[in-house]
């Protein structure tokens, strides 16, 4: 081995990655190479300094708890999926019919039987399901003029779709979901890594629920009724930024 080849062994030797034979050869070389010895001394002090606790960032307890919660939720969702997912498409067709006939006829004008708390649960579950099942969007588009017409013929109403990319909430697409006993439009927006689900469906007159907000299972929920539609916004985004998103959604134009 020439000198250059031996010098190339310095780092793997320092990392204990050489086999015994090459290791011995390098150590022999070290005896008469002051430059390699110097480098190794420098690397040793560097390695020692790199073990300082200031350089290591363990996960803090809040993050640990958040992840633990997310995982438990993922398990619940996956369990539900097994019985839920295969039959969903067939069930949806039946249910849409049922909604038209049963709810339309029997419950017209009657305050919704779903209480606010149950609806929060449902909305959060729908949000989690959308994240876990790789079923975030049926129509994948950042263009409001693609997303809005996609719902035509799939729903008996047309949800308002806003482009908020310039404000830092890009539209990812939309899908059909099922909430409050009926098919609803789900619009998906992003904020950094956070997903925001906006569920929209026609409101009863008068609205069966007052506007409100809260958090459930670590998700923030804000809901209100406007222009004859129920809006439910669910996300793990912080309340401040989610509030900003809602204000943008509510602003005219």
């Amino acid at each position: 081995m020439n000198r250059e080849e031996l010098h190339a062994l310095l780092h793997p030797w320092f990392d204990g990655e050489l086999d015994a034979a090459r290791s011995l050869e390098f150590e022999k070389h070290l005896d008469d190479c002051p430059s390699c010895r110097q480098q190794i001394e420098n690397q040793q002090s560097l390695r020692k300094a790199l073990t300082a606790p200031e350089l290591y960032y363990p996960a803090d307890n809040a993050l640990r708890r958040r992840i633990s919660r997310n995982l438990k939720k993922a398990v619940r969702t996956e369990s539900r999926m097994v019985s839920h997912w295969f039959s969903w498409n067939a069930a949806a067709a039946v249910v849409i019919l049922a909604v038209g006939i049963v709810i339309g006829v029997l419950l017209r004008g009657v305050p919704s039987s779903t209480s606010s708390k149950a609806l929060v649960n449902e909305a959060v579950a729908a949000n989690v399901r959308s994240l876990m099942a790789n079923h975030l969007t049926d129509v994948l588009s950042s263009d409001q003029h693609t997303v809005k017409p996609w719902f035509d013929g799939k729903l008996d109403f047309s949800p308002p779709v806003k482009d908020l990319a310039a404000q830092g909430f890009p539209l990812m697409g939309g899908r059909l979901d099922y909430l409050d006993g009926r098919p609803v439009a789900a619009l998906v927006y992003k904020r950094r890594l956070h997903t925001i689900n906006v569920f929209v469906w026609p409101a009863a007159t008068p609205p069966s629920l007052p506007a409100g907000s809260g958090s459930h299972d670590g998700y923030n929920v804000i809901h209100w009724t406007a222009t004859g539609m129920n809006f439910w916004v669910v996300s793990d985004l912080n309340t401040e930024e989610l509030g900003e998103f809602v204000r943008l959604l509510q602003s005219p134009g």
Binding site: Q38, E41, N42, S45, L46, A49, A52, P53, E54, L55
Partner: peptide, 12 residues
């Protein structure tokens, strides 16, 4: 030379 230094963690 680095080994003659007391390496400060913040600097590193």
């Amino acid at each position: 030379e680095l080994h003659q230094q007391d390496l400060d963690a913040r600097l590193l």
